[in-house]
Amino acid sequence: MTGARATRRQALFGGLCLCCLPTLGRAADAFSLDEVAPGVFVRRGPDAEATAENNDAIANIGFIVGRDGVLVTESGGSLADGHWLRAEIAKRTSKPIKYVLLTHVHPDHVFGAGAFQGDAPTFVGHAALRGALDARGDFYRQRLVEILGAERTGPVVYPTLEVKEPAEIDLGDRTIRLTAHGTAHTNCDLSMLDTGSGLLFPADLLFVGRIPSLDGSLLGWLREIERLKGMGAAAAVPGHGPVRVEFAPAIADLARYLTVLRDETRAAVAAGRPIEAAVRTVAQGEKDRWSLFETYHGRNVTQAYQELEWE
């Protein structure tokens, strides 16, 4: 029965969560924050599905302490996860929480925001995030409530600062450069570069170790990867994976996966191989290079096929 419930949840998120996986539930209080650069703290999210035990705390979340205040880089996957982060921040600084980034619409990245509403920060999101939350917010929330209950899930929080053109946030001693990307991982990906540490925060435009999930545009993602490369960062904090990685090899791995996915899907379309056959054959050479491959790769192929069959 337990197994059946887990798989049902997985299916409930099914098309949309994309960052969920069975088992491996870790208690939220087992997490810890790493100081990946002076004043920059990140909690690694495990490669797991949202479960009642882990509070959907599965993304890399954290904060940057500037002279004038705190910027939350990712809010968490639930109200409970956000409360955990809020408490960790309070242990380390008494500076005000001035900004909370909502990096894209996926639930493991936005449902922590409710924990910061009392701080009245500026909630920063891509200009397309509001529309995406309108379309999916309630859907995600209902499914998260089924797993965590309403109290731990929290509300859908909307951005109060919508980013379209490149923008900057001044924290006094460091500037955060924001980029609103074209449709890639999703249609509302926001990345940032911290000039204080030189660290790039691509959010889910960079998966490391964990299989990427495609929920926007394959060709668009490959374009935005080139844009990220142009930012000149040596190190990055990915949305999923280790808390700090060398940027060049990490983005090369992702680009390789997406390129193979593109090329082999195109070949399948050209050969008249139907979608149900393509999901079994395309990019199988990537199988041993990613965790959760079996769970998400077939869906990525489905997404890619739909995008490329009309080329």
């Binding site: 798989t7 049902r8 299916a11 409930l12 099914g14 098309g15 949309l16 529309g131 379309a135 999916r136 859907f139 499914r143 999703t186 249609n187 929920d215 926007g216």
Partner: peptide, 14 residues
């Protein structure tokens, strides 16, 4: 067939 939400799932675009 095991699946869920296919009819109500948002389309992911306007």
């Amino acid at each position: 067939v095991k699946a869920s939400g296919g009819c109500s799932a948002p389309m992911g675009m306007s």
